[in-house]
Amino acid sequence: MTKVLVLYYSSYGHIETMAQAVADGARQVDGADVTLKRVPELVPEEVRKNSGYKTDQAGEVLQDVNELENYDAIIVGTPTRFGNMTSQMRNLWDQTGGLWGNGKLIGKVGSAFTSTASQHGGQETTLTSIHTTLLHHGMVIVGVPYSHPGLTNMEEISGGTPYGASTLAGADGSRQPSENELDIARYQGQHVAEIARKLKG
């Protein structure tokens, strides 16, 4: 059994939707056991309500960072904050010093996906900044190969990069992930699960 964790943070549901697509793709791989979890929220409840955050989300909250060592692949999803991961996601990874010190994630597969408000809002820097953290843990980084035709789709405005799947939420958050973006996310999940299965042998 290849254990895959899709670990995400989502304020308004865009990354949650992408996470579910990534998980669906990973589930297409024989022997893949896929878990969907989200990181703890740091924003006070009153602020979340006043800001319209989506509080009813599919993934249960990851309570203990040490759980990360139980997976063969970890696919990280987060919106961008000034070209980097959100503070909620950063906070979780900042607690993994023990895992790092004991080499618990070395050789496991790492991957990332993201969302931005605008077409050039930091998608690729966010993804590569996540990769940097995963590389410090000794993980094997997997992106989205250009064998997926959605990466070169010029018929519409669309997210999707070789560094990981992505979506455009719009300045007011009204745009939802497109079918092309979701298809890339599913492909990423499947590709990561396949690589993890091969590495596990």
Rank of each mutant, 00 (worst) to 15 (best):
K3C: 06
V4E: 08
Y8S: 05
Y12G: 09
G13M: 10
E16S: 04
M18F: 01
A19P: 00
A21W: 01
A21I: 00
A21F: 00
V22H: 01
G25C: 09
V29G: 03
V29R: 06
V34M: 02
K37S: 13
P40G: 06
P40D: 07
E41L: 14
V43I: 12
E45Q: 13
K49Y: 05
S51C: 14
Y53L: 09
K54T: 11
Q57S: 02
A58W: 07
V61Y: 12
D64L: 07
N66Y: 12
L68M: 10
L68P: 06
N70E: 14
N70S: 14
Y71V: 04
A73D: 11
I75H: 02
G77E: 03
G77P: 07
T78D: 06
T80W: 04
F82K: 03
F82Q: 02
F82Y: 04
T86R: 00
M89K: 00
M89D: 00
M89S: 00
N91E: 04
N91T: 02
L92R: 00
D94W: 08
D94G: 05
G98P: 00
G101C: 01
G101S: 05
G103K: 02
G103C: 01
S111V: 08
S111E: 05
A112L: 04
F113T: 04
T116I: 09
A117R: 14
Q119R: 11
E124K: 12
T125P: 09
T128I: 13
I130R: 05
I130F: 05
L134P: 13
L135H: 12
L135N: 12
H137C: 09
H137V: 07
M139D: 11
V140A: 13
G143A: 06
P145F: 13
P145S: 14
S147E: 15
H148K: 10
G150T: 07
M154A: 15
P162S: 08
G164V: 09
G164W: 09
T167H: 13
A169T: 13
A171Q: 11
D172R: 10
G173I: 03
S174G: 05
R175D: 15
R175S: 15
Q176D: 12
Q176C: 10
P177K: 12
S178C: 15
D183L: 03
V192W: 04
A193L: 02
E194G: 01
A196L: 07
A196K: 06
G201T: 12
